[in-house]
Design a protein around this nucleic acid. Structure first.
Lengths: 204, 204, 204, 204
DNA sequence: TATGAATGAGTTTTCATTCAT
DNA sequence: TATGAATGAAAACTCATTCAT
């Protein structure tokens, strides 16, 4: 459809130039249509950007979802999800730039949009952590906020690794995923087993 | 000095509006001076932004450095550094926005500036990981890229947690640091002990 | 066409205010269009000015060329050319100001543009002088630089007379041309006949 | 005196950059004084420019006057005056640029200033033409406007030659003067002898 | 007398956005 | 449905000019 061409062009331009530096002229030209048509379909620059964010967010979550089989064990689900995530971000650098950099850098309306997607992923990871605890025959007596923080950290680590892998030639999605699993899962399982890291007394 | 007022205002505006959306008019007004004066002291919007990045980067690394005592064990150093990091970013949200979001989103000259600071921090963490391995009586037979990836992930996790903590009321720097230590350090020590997470065979 | 309106306005403003003192605002207003439209058609102030210079130079040379019949004797050609020149500059004082004053006063790119036109005219006059010498059965044993200097002086005299005539009410193109022919042609023919003015000895 | 330094600097900057492109900052810096001092002595940019014009005009007329001895024959006076004129303009290119280009390009107040000087020179030349006619035992039955036009043309030719000589390396003041004398004087004397160039009938 | 510090007003230029067709 | 033509509003930057000392 005509609209998809426009979104393709917009994601490319937004991802490369940034939201503000991107010009509607350039987007229309790259899409091969006239500017008024872009406005007819997508109303305004803000709407167009929002549409880009939504589409790319949907594509990313779909890719991750498609990579995961919910009947497998939690660590395997995490491993599969991470590989799907790293593979997708590597294949769609402009889309990833829109989600990870541009959307968060230009004010509430956009940041909220991407925060929704992020929340979904964090929730998925949180569920995995809880399931893992159950699989380890341990009730998650970790306070909810602690689990949330952990999931947040894990997702943040994944996002950083994605950016790093995109910028470092020769790093594959598989390697990124393995690094993160190594780093994170072992820590998590330690946690599950009741060996948390003990902070020194508060006064220091 | 007058220049500091201007930088204060600029960090605030850049941090909230973003680099491109920030107008020199607004910055000058917030600083309580006239626009030409801003140009007299700071030459151009680019220079002003670069000066902001440098000042905030220096402040952040100084804060972390001041929080760490190099004669203590590696885990204690990491704990102290993280607390200092989370405390500083919580106290200077605009500065953190400039460094973490704005500087990375607006082209090489700025990204390079912040990449230098980040590299310094990643190197610090990498050193801690290696020292930790030594303290655990284990030679770091982890390949160099693996260590780099881990440090990258850890720093990324910290950055994400900082943003999350800034946006989630009631999360203290201490809690963020504890979450991350729990999450990361245990995983690391597992790794040190030679119990990496084993990925499933490649075909799957 | 719309572009012509803009050039008309630009020539008028540039001619009266000067290149630097002319503001794009004023030009757009006089042209009855919005400023962005001027930029759409003519790209920048420099381009606009260059376009003015080219158009006026072309118009002037065309007017002179149209006034001259190459099959007539040299003096008649000069006479006709001068009349055409004075008539055109009198009818287009702003265009003449752009060519004679503004373009030469504002840096190489513009000066070069008008120098090309001037060179064409000087070449035309030079050719007439040589032809006149041949018609007078005299080989032009005048050194080349001498001829060039004479042509230069003649063109300069014409330019000055044009400005003077523009500023002195009641002086017609015909009168200006006659004055210059009287002044110049007689001197030239004297020269041809081998009666140059003899400078006093060098020491004085 | 301090004021002379400032005028020196101003003439240089105005001559090279042009009136509008010249900045008071640059002038003050080149003069080695502070900007407020320039304003103290010379009131405003316009006044400063006017002062430059006046000084350079006075210097040029003084140089020409000093080169001429009123007791010599008219052609000798013209010859001497021209040599002085070409020598002075060659030695003071910035001053000449101010008078010949800048002052005439930036509106009435300045153009009037230089027109006064020019009128003085034209009057001097006109007087020479009249004297020459008398010396040739011929009453100047040339109409006054004709004589004025001739003087105007002669001065214009001189100005053009000066610019040309300044831009053409290797042309000396003496050569320029000789070229112009050859070109003009012979024509003039022809005129005196009652052999004007006869224009073709008006209808053509 | 001399100046460091400061600014109001104006410049060119760009861009999201909309009619008229 | 599609667009060529047009613009209102704003941004970065500069400069002649003036206080306060």
């Amino acid at each position: 459809m005509r609209e998809q061409q426009m979104l393709d062009a917009a994601v490319r331009i937004f991802g490369q130039r940034g939201y503000m530096a991107a010009s509607m002229d350039e987007i229309a030209e790259l899409a091969g249509v006239s500017k008024p048509l872009v406005y007819l379909y997508l109303t305004s620059k803000e709407c167009l950007f929002t549409a880009c964010i939504r589409r790319e967010a949907a594509a990313l979550t779909a890719a991750v979802r498609a990579g995961v089989r919910p009947d497998l064990p939690a660590d395997r689900q995490l491993w599969d999800g991470l590989r799907a995530f790293f593979a997708h971000t590597a294949e769609h650098p402009d889309g990833w730039s829109v989600l990870h950099l541009q959307a968060r850098t230009h004010g509430e309306p956009f940041a909220a949009e991407v925060a929704a997607m992020r929340a979904e992923i964090v929730a998925f990871v949180t569920r995995l952590v809880v399931v893992a605890a159950r699989e380890a025959h341990r009730d998650p007596d970790l306070p909810e906020r602690e689990v949330a923080g952990i999931a947040e950290a894990l997702v943040g680590a994944a996002e950083s690794l994605a950016a790093w892998a995109n910028a470092t030639p020769g790093v594959t999605a598989r390697q990124s995923a393995a690094t993160l699993m190594n780093f994170a899962w072992a820590g998590l399982s330690n946690l599950m087993r009741g060996h948390p890291w003990a902070p020194p007394p508060a006064d220091s």
